[in-house]
Design a protein around this nucleic acid. Structure first.
Ligand SMILES: NC(=O)c1ccc[n+]([C@@H]2O[C@H](COP(=O)([O-])OP(=O)(O)OC[C@H]3O[C@@H](n4cnc5c(N)ncnc54)[C@H](O)[C@@H]3O)[C@@H](O)[C@H]2O)c1
Ligand SMILES: NC(=O)c1ccc[n+]([C@@H]2O[C@H](COP(=O)([O-])OP(=O)(O)OC[C@H]3O[C@@H](n4cnc5c(N)ncnc54)[C@H](O)[C@@H]3O)[C@@H](O)[C@H]2O)c1
Lengths: 232, 232
DNA sequence: CGACGCTCGTGCGCACATTCACAAAGTCGT
DNA sequence: ACGACTTTGTGAATGTGCGCACGAGCGTCG
């Protein structure tokens, strides 16, 4: 493909860690810390220091040898790289149990993802107010997405309705979807989907629990550790 | 019980996909399907067919050449491998916005993770009933964990309290933690932590959105697609 | 009952990710 | 101004995961 000036592509694994660094840098900054070494950051993020340096090197060389990284500047650079220099409006589809928790969750606004609208098909849910946002009928989705320039949609419907919800979001113009339903969504190329499935998470945990039990039962001298989540 | 089957270590990437296969196999089984090829499963899971076969090969050779996989048998085998042949009680720490949504969520019981207790420090939350479970004071955590053989804990407290909650869970004997707070938890070796951070997910999405915008602006000849979540 | 077609299981090479290890580049004290 | 010390940035080594491609086995049909 295009050889040279192709914008340094940041590896997926790194993209997934940058928000974690950002979070903890913000936290330290709030605590008055102005400088941190890769070693410090690594300790806080429970990862290898070399990994931290390599990750940060993808977005530029903002460290100072012998000193470390200026926290404020680094926060700025990571934020910019993640596209946090402006707000991204989101819409939430499904105003049930989870949808209401999400709508009432302050974190969206704080982090720069204002909730532009919540949608449901259940008439009893429509026009209720959740977290200061009035629930609208799903049919109003296209209008809101267009008017408010929404590019991120959250799917919080039952699994059976999730694909329909995703289809509507895509049709309305949304190009990123955060899906909480236990289904694999099918979307056209060019649309990014991330699924957060509680059941999957629990099953991954119970897999490890099960191994642990098997090991303890003395069947095998298993000794490995630190799987997918973080340990320390 | 555990078969004499020499238990190889299953790659993390595979462990993370098995629950997805399981979910969709259950769904197809409910629809009356008795047999599926790796190609079929791959289409449903939006992954490569060879990957499906390799994943399944880690848990045994349960397919039939020329035919495919018997859905029911495969469901049984995956379930066994994930430790779903018995129930895993969970406790939820933090009965706020999210904790209540989780407590009221039927999915826990359905999937074999009965909620053995919900805990909070806020006296106004204690003794309220969420999803049929009475919220108890955090001080009662050790007793419940011990009595009900709980090995999985869910952290749904504010970020500031999450480390404390994790410490208490670990001290009580919990060895797997599902963390919803935006912090990197520090736990002793031998304890598995998985963090689900809404902010991280949104930031990963906005990173991709941002690239997309940059690409559209014609500044860079970016052409790649299908990042970390699933597309199709 | 043998040939054929289908699909599994897996060896192999490639790409991506992680970690090590060290020169380069800075700071700090004298 | 210089040497001792610290910490970055990155090549190279190692580890992990992915997907092609193909042999092996099973079922079917003539
Ligand atoms: N509640 C939780 O704590 C929790 C946790 C993890 C995952 N989830 C998942 O999140 C999803 C929602 O869970 P919930 O507990 O909020 O369920 P819920 O039944 O309480 O809410 C679902 C809402 O979606 C609405 N809905 C149904 N079909 C729709 C459609 N086609 N378009 C728009 N809205 C529609 C319903 O009217 C309802 O208000 C489920 O897939 C569930 O598995 C929930
Ligand atoms: N609400 C959401 O939709 C949502 C979504 C994603 C992530 N989260 C995260 O989940 C966590 C909880 O969010 P929330 O909206 O439920 O907050 P919340 O404030 O509604 O609830 C927090 C609860 O934790 C309790 N608590 C505080 N300190 C505690 C302690 N030391 N031990 C036990 N309980 C304690 C509080 O009394 C309160 O009931 C936060 O970290 C948040 O970032 C929430």
């Amino acid at each position: 493909m295009s050889p040279q000036h192709r914008r340094r592509r940041i590896p997926d694994a790194t993209v997934a860690r940058l928000p974690v660094y950002l979070q903890l840098l913000n936290e330290r900054m709030a605590a008055g810390v102005t400088n941190l070494s890769s070693e410090d950051i690594a300790a806080l993020a429970a990862v290898n220091a070399a990994k931290v340096r390599k990750d940060l090197s993808y977005i530029g060389t903002y460290g100072t040898r012998g000193v470390g990284y200026d926290v404020e500047y680094l926060v700025y650079q990571i934020s910019r790289e993640l596209g946090l220099d402006h707000e991204w409006s989101v819409v939430i589809v499904g105003a049930g149990n989870l949808g209401q928790a999400l709508g009432g969750y302050g974190g969206f606004n704080v982090r720069g993802y204002p909730v532009a609208g919540m949608f449901d098909i259940d008439e009893t849910k429509v026009d209720t107010v959740v977290g200061g946002v009035r629930v609208k009928h799903l049919d109003d989705l296209p209008k809101v997405v267009a008017q408010q320039q929404v590019s991120i949609g959250v799917v919080a419907t039952p699994a059976e309705a999730a694909q329909d919800a995703a289809d509507r979001l895509v049709r309305a113009g949304v190009t990123s979807i955060l899906n909480f339903a236990s289904v694999v969504l099918s979307v056209p190329l060019g649309v990014t989907v991330r699924t957060v499935d509680l059941g999957v998470e629990l099953q991954i945990l119970s897999y490890h629990e099960q191994r642990r039990v098997a090991a303890a039962t003395g069947l095998r001298p298993v000794a490995d550790e630190a799987p997918s989540g973080r340990s320390a």
